[in-house]
Amino acid sequence: MREVMAEAENPVMLYSIGKDSSVMLHLAMKAFYPSKPPFPLLHVDTTWKFREMIEFRDRRAAELGVDLIVHINQEGVSEGVGPFSHGSAVHTDIMKTQSLKQALDKYKFDAAFGGARRDEEKSRAKERIFSFRNPQHRWDPKNQRPELWHLYNGRVRAGESMRVFPLSNWTDLDIWQYIYQENIPIVPLYYAQSRPVVERDGMLIMVDDDRIPLEAGEVPEEKVVRFRTLGCYPLTGAIESRADNLATIIEEMLVARTSEREGRAIDKDGSASMEKKKQEGYF
């Protein structure tokens, strides 16, 4: 993080409100102490996030005294883009990927921190910690800068940029372990609690507001559930669980038989889908 600060002109931290972002932000507080992190946080709001995420975001930014930029793709909003009307792929592309590019262009950020980890997905396992993007924000997996020792090359020309992943070599277990040790606040949705859910394509979807179309006569069911990963509520599956504290979450994780990204609709279309999205500018 300090290397980015020293080399970039205008860095920003992508803050997705999830547990990885919480860890990344905590690390930033440490890295620059006693200074505050010398860059703003950017949240690309798709307008479909869980309400508890938004509350948490605003509260944390205020508590820590860091600048928060919230960007919403207004064109998408005025066209009424959403996961129910347009499907997950179109929604994610317009409200997340395109919106992110808009924000990066608007503020002319030349380096953006992201909380992605190499253990999440097989194309991420191939990505550098300092990941070069051309002026169209594209990642070229076949032409990555060699990254040796701890010598990070963060230099770019005007219009080009860097995505930087400080948590690259952390595993899921490392994240939870660190949250536990350092007592890092996370969104309550990670803890089990009774919540209204409906079933969609085999996933338990929480009824977070009344934009979710219910079938005639369908009544949301109250179930004790929690989330292993957070995103847009209509695209994020809950799991039935009784884990309502960190110790039990970690225990549950240790015996889990499925990976955490399984709860994300977006990762399922085709096995090369993440690589393709990343090439197009997705985080």
Binding site: R118, R124, N169, A272, E275
Partner: peptide
Amino acid sequence: DGLAAEREQGITIDVAYRF
């Protein structure tokens, strides 16, 4: 071998980090 090109050609092109 996580990249599309690697899977198609059956070879490794770039370094992968696993844990």
